[in-house]
Design a protein around this nucleic acid. Sequence first.
DNA 1: TCTATTGGTTGGAGCGCTCCAATGCTGTAG
DNA 2: CTACAGCATTGGAGCGCTCCAACCAATAGA
Lengths: 333, 333
Amino acid sequence: MVRPTMEDVALRAGVSRALVSLVMRGSPKVSEMRRSAVLKAAEELGYSPHAMARSLASRTSTVLGVMVSDLHNAFFAEVVDGIDEVARDQGFDIIINTGGRSPARERRALESLLSFRPAGLILLSPVVPATAIGKAAEQLPIVLVARSSRVSTVDTVNDDGEQGARLAIDHLVSLGHQRIAHLDGGEGTQAGPRRRGYIAAMEAHGLTPQVVSSEYTDAAGARAIRSLIESDSLPTAVLSCNDFNAVGAISALEDAGLCVPQDVSVVGYDNTSLAALRHISLTTIDQPRAEFGRLAASALLQRVREDRTEPVRHLLNPSLVVRNTTAPPGGLR
Amino acid sequence: MVRPTMEDVALRAGVSRALVSLVMRGSPKVSEMRRSAVLKAAEELGYSPHAMARSLASRTSTVLGVMVSDLHNAFFAEVVDGIDEVARDQGFDIIINTGGRSPARERRALESLLSFRPAGLILLSPVVPATAIGKAAEQLPIVLVARSSRVSTVDTVNDDGEQGARLAIDHLVSLGHQRIAHLDGGEGTQAGPRRRGYIAAMEAHGLTPQVVSSEYTDAAGARAIRSLIESDSLPTAVLSCNDFNAVGAISALEDAGLCVPQDVSVVGYDNTSLAALRHISLTTIDQPRAEFGRLAASALLQRVREDRTEPVRHLLNPSLVVRNTTAPPGGLR
DNA sequence: TCTATTGGTTGGAGCGCTCCAATGCTGTAG
DNA sequence: CTACAGCATTGGAGCGCTCCAACCAATAGA
């Protein structure tokens, strides 16, 4: 249960501790002979450097902290993939912590992450108040994903929700739809831009927007559809606020004996793994999630290594993924 | 960008560094007067202790490392919730790292986690070779979740896959099914117990097992069903190795013009959020995921704090969740 | 009065490492 | 034969903290 130290390796290899340190950091100014002797000794002892001691001594860190607001959401998993890719590439490790969707837990997670003195922090869709972020930003570089900020020490990476909604509407209109409702995400993150984009796109096409209040869940999507059917105002196409909502909408439509997409077309948003399931095969809007992660990590590393100080604001373009839930209205082809 | 140290606080409060240390650790042997002076100075300076320096000096850690083999799988999110709950309760922080489903990345994640010298490690369904785990177990306590081990220094938390499969078969048999196939998970974790449980349950009912080779994906589930249809050996019910596989099976059945559950019943395994979607509404086997996490964290902390040395093997009981993909065979009701 | 005892406080050593100035060593030029 | 690079190597200081033995009143007991 006790790990060997640099001293142990040095002793075994018959060199000084400083030399072992040089070898471990891959310094070129070490003779091949010593290097191999040290590596051999380290191998035999099962030695690996103590990251904390290293960072303490060097007053630098090769760790990026990542706070994920909700681990249950696969959206973040792909962002983390992107972060991981870039970080690993540049010799950085990442440690993740989760905020569990509550500001209190998130605050604690932030504290915990900070106590490791990482080189920087990436916050995925955090819900903590802006002041807490601003305060942390005084201590280290911070990048926000899926949340905006005006603090100049903080970089942000977001998708353009308005454009995403526009893509969906353009697609539906090009299929021949005129009556297109939007099942709205209410207070949910990013619901605002999507709604605005929907309204703007409808008006640009000379059509009347029809916003139906709903939420980011499949139950809410089903409820919204039922209310549309009851009030006899079912359109020929629906843009849901996200994929879950869309799946709920689809099942409510099928329950009512309607066919998707022959009777009603449905478009989701987010392109979660759900949408790709052959059983669902949902037309949806894709956000470049891995790209979010890559950009976030790159932005952070620029601050860390290149001392950039002016803030970066990435606004990425979503894209349309056409699957089997959209077709021309009235079943015509 | 430079954080104050204990020295700074001591200076400001007019006391020694050691006293500040005592206050920070909540020692009772500090006079009220000094304590408040120190806390005030710390507050004013925005001081918070440096976790790494602390752990280096004390040769102990209040951090638990968690390696999640696949962040995309919501299964793990709930386990992490359970871990987090217990750990936080006992004053431990957790740091998460992801293996990205590849042994190489997982190995790296393990290394990275170890370099922080946490008090212990929880590995969620790891795919690294047992030897790597055994080696790590020489350095710190390790708990494995959803993977078994014979190493005596390693604790394990698993669900009883055999029992889960039995529950599913009993349910189907009680509905009247006689011909029930198992879409097998192949090399996947936990596929073995589930297969064994299926075979044992079938034989216990005097029925002939029919194991179809498949995988943990929806595409594989669909493929398996198509092969059954082609070979004209489609049973009246199917037990899939997991929910994804089941969803693939369902869509292949529907593509073939068959109705679920009227023509064929389908049971999944895992009770992922997918299964609960009304559009899918899958009968499946639930594992107590948060309980996995709680037990794993408790087991680890017992090793850490109470020096337990004999291994613990938790085997939790899964339960059947009946939804809308199972019914009596032949559509009879 | 002197010695124990106690509760509060302190300086110093040391955790495992990095960094730096200094050292030894070879080889080549003066 | 000395001088001087140039390179490989080393000891020591120090990162921010904890831990421990020592210390210092102030009070209690003899």
